[in-house]
Design a protein around this nucleic acid. Structure first.
Lengths: 340, 340
DNA sequence: TTGACTATTCAAAGCGCTTTGGGTGACATG
DNA sequence: CATGTCACCCAAAGCGCTTTGAATAGTCAA
């Protein structure tokens, strides 16, 4: 069933039917009713491709997912982010187009999405500190919002980020307050902007007490369970082992907990752990008492809001870039205690 | 830059340019070269919407992600599955369209995708034992492949599944062989087909030894860390506590491990655990020695292959449905040992 | 020289929609 | 009675591509 058939069936012109369905005022209320009920009963939906060709808008948002070439992994927060964003999109009648891409040819992917005209806007994931995608997208003139930000990018652009620096600064302060002095930082890859900022927060809190970070207690790696385990095992084997760990993801923290147990220690008593917690649906941080003391911020919520920003930007491309910072809460769980 | 402009620039007709770019033989090799190099230097890519309107093919695959209304979570294997499928799709020039949907109105989502003509085929996730989506899609005439299968569905359809029953049967046999007699099953929701089959495998192995499953040792829940923790904590508090756990997901198994530690027991010595392992990128089951003894099957690989099946089906819709079973391997890790 | 091919190229129609630029009556106004 | 104003409705153009059906020129055997 297409417009033409529907129009013929109703003995009306395509124009009138189209207008009736799209809420234009030049149609009598009576015809509108007639058209709408016919459309419903004949199960008519306009062809998206034809519609977007005619209007110039695709009603689709592109999400480019870089696949880390080295680890062949998709960021585990992606599912929750997209679930949040999807809510916003579908409420506004937008589709999600996903483009998976080896991270080295990401630029080509964006150019393609633009040249082929398959999306109205792009949501940029996982920005690096210096990220060539931002000038590229600006040049292409495609509306975009960055989830996170790129510290070394000077020009204006829209982004939504959590306050990574403040979160890790507070977490570090909390550990210092508990008497910990040898604190390990098990961070994500530090060319990623979020990891860089977390480290900055960590170092700032130490500096405020005239402490220097010990390079032997700092790791910057892909955030997997195994990488956390390894880092903790190696560090705990040292003579000057850390008494606390500050960790960038729950999954890594779980690996660290494993290493702590394996060393015959108890988390929260012998060794403290604070992790960042994205509040993922399948990996809740405990129920009544959180397993881990954590800096928490819902990535699902971030998805919802970033999507809303992008839709605003698409509606009015002239608008100046908007930015938004979400604060993370510091929640106290069972994984921290006074320094032994 | 569009076809018309490119054609004018080359002083050729749109027909010829289109044919040159799409590899039709009625174009001289010389013009083809000229066209191709001009397209490249002018950065021309055909508009996907226009192309799909003209050809009737959208070059897009729909993935409908049901959001569990109760838990608001996206299945954590989704990222890896889509990463695998994405490889196949992008090699064939297909896009991925994601549709997030509350699970109660999934049927409407499929009807929509079809009526609006936005995809050439659909990949169905998370089939239930009896799943109305299968007859629906068959009726709509849209090519589809199911990741998993629906045991109660009688008609033919294409699916790709792992041998869940056999995997859990083997795992149970292995535990029985180690002397365990009280084995707990911490399963996913059993209206999900995979969970039903795993349970069947578990029960079959017990029955082969004339053992009866104890309902007090069986759980069927959403597979989160917390649900695993709770299940294990409750079971381990019993007088007749289980000596082994058979678990449907790594994340749940991690919760179980937490409960085991908390009870002052040691996994692999006091309590054995076998889990299913989807071999997720960010949640590898250890490095040299696996953390958990596990039934392993790469969900990423499943994605690659399911996508390939779907593309075959789209190329030749008349072809009879294909099915494929992937066997899971039983890998021995540190979480199992003789019954105490 | 002619007709039959073959190799290239093109104009135009059509995919399903929106939107521009009129029409056509009915009715009120002067 | 002529004119203007509404309220509705329509034909046709156009979005950027593919594809059908022809046209043109060159080649070759008869």
């Amino acid at each position: 069933m297409n417009l033409k058939e529907l129009a013929k069936h109703l003995k009306l012109s395509q124009t009138t039917v189209s207008r009736a369905l799209n809420g234009y005022p030049e149609v009598s209320e009576q015809t509108r009713q007639r058209v709408q009920s016919a459309a419903r009963s004949l199960n008519y939906s306009p062809n998206t491709r034809a519609k977007s060709l005619a209007t110039g808008r695709t009603q689709a948002i592109g999400h480019v997912l870089p696949i880390s070439a080295s680890h062949e992994m998709v960021n585990p927060v992606f599912g929750d982010f997209i679930a949040g964003a999807g809510r916003t999109y579908s409420a506004a009648g937008y589709e999600i187009v996903i483009s998976l891409v080896q991270d080295q040819d990401e630029a080509a992917a964006y150019r393609n999405l633009h040249a082929r005209g398959s999306v109205d806007g792009i949501l940029v994931h996982g920005p690096h500190m210096s990220d060539p995608r931002i000038p590229l997208l600006r040049e292409l003139g495609l509306p975009f919002v960055v989830h996170g930000r790129a510290s070394q990018e000077t020009g204006p652009y829209s982004w939504l980020d959590i306050n990574n620096q403040r979160a890790f600064e507070r977490a570090t302060e909390f550990l210092l307050h508990l008497g910990h002095r040898r604190i390990a930082l098990v961070n994500g890859l530090e060319f990623m902007d979020f990891a860089f900022r977390r480290r900055a927060g960590f170092e700032a809190a130490l500096a405020a007490r005239d402490l220097k970070p010990d390079p032997a207690l700092m790791r910057s790696e892909e955030m997997t369970e195994v990488s956390g385990y390894r880092a903790a095992r190696e560090m705990l084997a040292r003579d000057d082992a850390p008494t606390a760990f500050l960790v960038s993801s729950m999954i890594t923290a779980i690996g660290i907990r494993r290493a702590i147990h394996e060393a015959g220690l108890e988390m929260g008593r012998d060794v403290s752990v604070i992790t960042h917690d994205d509040n993922l649906g399948y990996l809740k941080n405990g129920h009544s008492v959180p397993i881990f003391t954590a800096t928490r911020s819902s990535v699902r919520l971030a998805g919802e809001q970033a999507a809303a920003m992008l839709l605003d930007l698409i509606r009015d491309p002239a608008r100046t870039p908007k930015t938004q910072v979400l604060e993370a809460e510091l929640i106290i769980g069972a994984s921290t205690g006074p320094a032994p």
